[in-house]
Structures are given as structure tokens and as C-alpha cells.
Simulated scan of single mutants.
Amino acid sequence: MSETLILAEVLDLNAAQPLKAELLALRGHALTLDASAVERLGGLCLQILMSARKTWAADGVNLSLGSVSQYWTEQWAALGAPDFNNEGALA
């Protein structure tokens, strides 16, 4: 069974450490990220999320992105990040 982590509205420098801690506490569990409330996404939180994606893939556990806000979509693309649900997929 997959757990869901609802991401904070503001994922900036101040949110980085709490986000990292939440993800580490859920490591080893199938996880869906809910980004429907995100209004701002900063580079450090993006790096944490991409690192989590690689970690979950290396552990053989599913980590996926569920609902997203328009802000998430725009800022994810503006930061040049690859598609979250396909990044790290085995070729």
C-alpha cells in the first residue's frame, strides 16, 4: 500500500530540512507525493525531491508524483527538471 506525502505550499530554503526529514522517515515505503497545494518551488527542495526519486528507484520502491498545482508545473519546468514520474526509470 502506498503512502501519500502532502507537500507544503512553499518549498523554499526554510522547507528543505523538514522535507528531507519527512522523506527519510518514509524511505522504504511506496510513496505518492501530492503537490496540489504547492505555490512556490525552490531549487534546494527540487534537488531533495530528485535525490529522493533516485533513492527510491535504487531501493526498488515506487515513488510517484500525484496531483500537482499549476504553480508546481510551471516552476518545475522553469527549473529545467526532467519529468518526475519518468526520471530515473530503468532503460
Rank of each mutant, 00 (worst) to 15 (best):
Q47M: 08
L24F: 12
I6A: 08
E22R: 12
A25C: 06
D59F: 03
L19A: 04
D12A: 00
W72P: 04
T55A: 13
L49N: 02
W72C: 04
E3V: 06
G88V: 14
A78M: 12
E3D: 12
D12S: 03
A8K: 06
D34L: 00
W72Y: 05
A16C: 12
L90A: 15
D59Q: 14
K54N: 09
G80W: 11
N14C: 02
I48N: 01
A35D: 08
S51D: 11
S51M: 07
M50F: 11
G60D: 06
E74F: 01
V10L: 10
F84I: 08
A57E: 10
L44Y: 05
S69I: 08
G66W: 05
L11G: 03
W76N: 10
A37C: 02
D83N: 14
L13V: 13
W76Y: 11
L26W: 01
L19P: 01
L49A: 05
A58S: 14
G60L: 05
E74S: 07
W72D: 03
A25H: 13
L33E: 03
A16M: 06
V38C: 07
A58E: 14
R40N: 08
V38T: 09
L24R: 15
H29D: 09
A25V: 09
E22C: 06
A52T: 04
L79P: 11
M50L: 15
R40I: 00
K54Q: 13
L79N: 11
W56K: 02
A78L: 12
L90W: 14
S64I: 05
S69R: 02
E9C: 03
V10G: 00
N62G: 06
W56A: 00
G80F: 10
V10K: 10
A8P: 11
D83R: 14
R53C: 01
S2C: 04
L79E: 08
L24N: 15
L13M: 12
V61M: 05
A21E: 07
V61T: 15
N14V: 04
V38R: 02
L5S: 05
E39V: 11
L23K: 12
L19I: 07
E39S: 13
L13N: 10
L7V: 09
G42K: 00
E39N: 13
S36I: 11
L44M: 13
R53G: 02
E87R: 04
E87C: 07
A30H: 15
